[in-house]
Design a protein around this nucleic acid. Structure first.
Length: 296
DNA sequence: AAAGCAGACAACCGCATTTAT
DNA sequence: GATAAATGCGGTTGTCTGCTT
């Protein structure tokens, strides 16, 4: 026999999450870590399915998430990686640890796709690049398959090299490679602390959206939170939580620069090894970024 | 001021893969 | 090894917001 069902679909709440629900979820994860999602709805009393809880956590409540406008470097990175990896948003997101796959996907669909399309009309050279991505599939005849595959691999390598060289030129640690995530035990205190900032941000938005909302009161949020928080060392929530939640600090999270980094992924290593084997190191690295740099 | 429209984004759905029994 | 649930991922949809008419 397999496992027992994760959650019955009866009475499962859908739609936007409320700050109360967010706080309940974060408080629970603060105590138990982001695992065993199946148990989350039952243990917290949230009328959400485990899947929804996990999604909410990974996309919005998880600490270290950067929201708001994408920088030009991030844009370039996404474009390069999309050309390289296709619509594998989770893989792309692993190179932009502060962004979620959902965020990147949305940004691609709403901004970059259009931007590229517009530029595609302007720049013939650029067209060449984008046509090789999965975004612009071309019908390929049987005989051309092998050659097309080789071209795809070449373009993918080129795109990755360009993406890698971005980091060399810039001071940012944007392209740090896939991040090794810390275990809850290693980083729990710092990790969950910054979740309050995420909630504060979401709460601000919520309050803006519905200033007269009767469904959320500072008292209710406070009681919800205090009821779940167990450790005094984790900090306290003042009675004026709603207006001051952004001041709540358990412990500042580590700066990104201190995050564990892996210099190169296997793919990148493969790429560079391959280039070296062919005596083409210079070829990739010397390739001008102009092709896409001109876009910005 | 109201209606219509388009853009942006949060969340859901369904499929594929992984994992526990 | 077989089975079924859990988890992860990408595509899609629904809703909200701001702009235009």
């Amino acid at each position: 026999m397999g496992r027992s069902p994760c959650c019955d679909k009866i009475g499962v709440k859908k739609g936007p999450w409320t700050p109360e629900e967010d706080i309940i979820l974060v408080s629970y994860i603060q105590q138990h870590g982001p695992a065993n999602w199946r148990a989350v709805p039952a243990k917290t009393g949230l009328m959400r399915c485990s899947k929804s809880c996990r999604l909410r956590w990974t996309n919005y409540l998880r600490p270290g998430i950067k929201r708001g406008e994408f920088t030009q470097d991030e844009e370039k990175m996404i474009i390069h990686l999309q050309a390289l990896l296709g619509n594998r948003w989770a893989a792309i997101a692993s190179y932009l640890p502060q962004r979620t796959d959902n965020d990147i996907k949305n940004y691609w669909n709403t901004h970059l796709k259009k931007k590229l399309k517009r530029l595609q009309g302007q720049d013939g050279n650029f067209k060449q690049t984008t046509e090789n991505s999965s975004e612009y599939p071309k019908p390929v005849s049987k005989g051309q398959w092998e050659r097309t595959l080789q071209t795809d691999i070449h373009m993918a390598k080129k795109a990755l090299c360009e993406a890698l060289s971005l980091d060399k030129s810039g001071s940012s640690s944007l392209f740090a490679g896939p991040q090794i995530t810390e275990t809850p035990a290693q980083s729990q205190s710092s990790m969950y602390a910054s979740s309050t900032e995420n909630i504060a941000r979401l709460l601000e938005k919520w309050m803006k959206k519905s200033p007269n909302s009767s469904s959320v009161s500072s008292e209710s949020i406070q009681s919800t939170y205090v009821g779940l928080s167990t450790s005094p060392s984790e900090g306290t929530i003042s009675p004026t939580l709603v207006s001051h939640i952004s001041d709540v600090r358990f412990e500042e999270s580590k700066p990104d620069s201190e995050m564990t980094q892996v210099p190169f992924s296997l793919l990148e290593k493969w790429l560079l090894d391959d280039a070296a084997a062919q005596g083409q190191e210079g070829y990739f690295m010397d390739m001008a970024l102009g092709e896409t740099a001109d876009l910005f």
